[in-house]
Write a protein that binds this DNA or RNA. Structure first.
Length: 98
DNA sequence: GACCTGACTCAAC
DNA sequence: AGTTGAGCCAGGT
């Protein structure tokens, strides 16, 4: 576990249910607005149920990836009330800053 | 310490 | 609007 990863996890934990944030937003939250990739890397390694990694998506609104399979991620989001559009995008209204 | 890799993002074609 | 290339950052080898 690295310092950066810890901060990332902290930020991700703060995402409320039924709401999602982009990798870039998380990066920004930890003070490294250009480290969206690293955020993804940290989440990819993280298997802790404490961190809702499935609430983190691409800046475009696309799902991005998930360590337990993208489909699983989609299901979880739907369960939490986040709508997934037919084009494979998350409902823009569910973004953290709306 | 240099080199490669990756759940990303932006700009250009 | 879909694809391609280049840029960025932290970790691991």
């Amino acid at each position: 576990m690295t310092d950066f990863a810890e901060k990332v996890y902290e930020a991700v934990k703060k995402i409320p249910q039924g709401r999602v944030a982009t990798y870039k937003d998380i990066a920004k939250a930890v003070g490294r607005s250009r480290s969206a990739r690293v955020v993804g890397g940290a989440l990819n390694k993280n298997y802790s149920p404490e961190v809702p990694c499935h609430r983190v998506i691409c800046s475009d609104g696309k799902l991005g990836g998930y360590n337990r399979g993208q489909n699983n991620k989609k299901s979880l989001l739907l369960k939490e009330g986040v709508k997934i559009l037919a084009n494979g995008r998350v409902d823009t209204r569910c973004m953290a800053g709306s």
